[in-house]
Computed example of a mutant assay.
Amino acid sequence: MPNLQETLDLSSYVALGDSFTEGLNDPGLDGAFFGWADRLAGMLAQGRPRGEFRYANLAVRGRLLDQIAAEQVPQVQRLQPDLVTLCAGGNDILRPGSDPDEVAERFESAVARLADSAGTVLICTGFDTKDVPLLKHLRGKIATYNGHMRAVADRNGCKVADLWSLRSVQDRRAWSEDRLHLSPEGHQRVALLAARSLGLRTEEDPEAPWPAARVLSAADQRRENIQWAREYLLPWVGRRLRGESSGDHVEPKRPELMPL
C-alpha cells in the first residue's frame, strides 16, 4: 500500500497546541505522554531510513491560543519544518463568555504566520460534545468555531482533520476517565484521521467498529457521573476559579526537531 512519501515529501514535522497534542492520558514507555501527534510522526517516518525523519512537539497542556501563538509559533519560524499541525482554541472556547468568532480571528492570524514557515499546515476542528456532560452545552459554540476553521483552511491552503465528523470517538472508550482527554485508542483514531487528511492511505481505519461493550444501567451511569464529578470536574473547576493551569511549570516534551 503506498505511503505518504509517494505524494508529499515530508522529512520534518512540528506539532503545536495544548494537552490534546501533548498527548495527555496516552502514557508512553518512558513515562512521558505519547499521543496522536507522536503516533502520526511514527506513521510519517515509516519507509524512511532510520533517523532521517525529524519531529518536535511543542504542545503544553492548558495553553490558551494567545500563549500558543506567543510561545510556539515563533519556534516554527525558526525550525522551518515540512509539516506543522496546529490544534488550538479549545481552552479558549471552554471559558465563559468566549466568542468563537473572535477566537477564530486570532487563530487565523497564527495560521497566516505559520504559512510562511512550513510547507504544509494541518489544523483540527473541535470534537462533537453532544454526549459529554456539561460540555454538551457548548456544542453550538464549538460548531460555530468549526465553521470558521474550515473557512480558515480554505483561505490559507491548510489541510483539515475533521474531528467533529469522526464518529468513532463518540464511543466512551475513546476517552480516558477524566472525559476531557483521549484514551490511547482514541489518540490512535485521531492519528489515523490526521494521516488520511494528509493523503496517507492507512491500513487501519479510524472509523473501524469497536468491539461490543457492556451496557451500563441507569444507576451505574449515575454512580460513574458522580465519581467523575468528584475526581475530575471539581478539581478542574477549582483551578479555573484560582486562575491556575495544569500546564504551569510544564515544558514542551520535545522542543527541538530530533530524529525518530
Rank of each mutant, 00 (worst) to 15 (best):
3 N>W: 00
4 L>M: 09
5 Q>N: 02
7 T>H: 08
11 S>L: 11
14 V>C: 00
14 V>A: 01
19 S>H: 00
19 S>Q: 00
20 F>C: 15
23 G>M: 02
24 L>I: 14
26 D>E: 08
27 P>F: 06
28 G>K: 01
29 L>R: 12
29 L>F: 10
31 G>M: 07
32 A>K: 14
33 F>A: 14
36 W>S: 03
36 W>K: 02
39 R>T: 13
41 A>G: 06
42 G>L: 08
43 M>C: 03
46 Q>P: 08
46 Q>A: 14
47 G>H: 09
49 P>T: 12
50 R>C: 14
56 A>H: 03
59 A>I: 02
62 G>M: 01
69 A>T: 04
73 V>T: 12
74 P>V: 05
76 V>C: 13
78 R>G: 09
78 R>A: 10
82 D>W: 04
86 L>C: 01
95 R>E: 10
96 P>C: 06
97 G>Q: 05
99 D>C: 11
105 E>D: 13
111 V>L: 07
112 A>Y: 05
113 R>K: 12
115 A>N: 04
116 D>Q: 04
125 T>R: 09
125 T>E: 04
126 G>T: 15
129 T>N: 15
131 D>L: 08
132 V>I: 15
135 L>C: 09
138 L>H: 14
140 G>C: 02
144 T>D: 06
144 T>G: 09
150 R>I: 10
153 A>T: 03
154 D>I: 01
154 D>Q: 07
155 R>Q: 14
158 C>W: 04
160 V>K: 05
160 V>Y: 10
163 L>H: 10
164 W>Y: 08
165 S>I: 06
166 L>G: 05
166 L>T: 09
167 R>Q: 09
168 S>I: 07
168 S>F: 03
169 V>P: 06
174 A>L: 03
177 E>I: 00
178 D>I: 04
180 L>G: 05
184 P>F: 06
185 E>R: 06
185 E>C: 04
186 G>Y: 00
187 H>Q: 08
188 Q>L: 07
190 V>M: 11
191 A>Q: 01
195 A>M: 10
204 E>S: 15
206 P>G: 10
207 E>D: 10
207 E>R: 07
208 A>Q: 15
213 A>L: 13
214 R>V: 14
215 V>E: 15
216 L>C: 12
216 L>E: 11
224 E>G: 11
234 L>N: 07
235 P>E: 00
237 V>D: 00
239 R>I: 03
243 G>C: 01
251 E>M: 00
255 P>F: 05
256 E>S: 12
258 M>G: 06
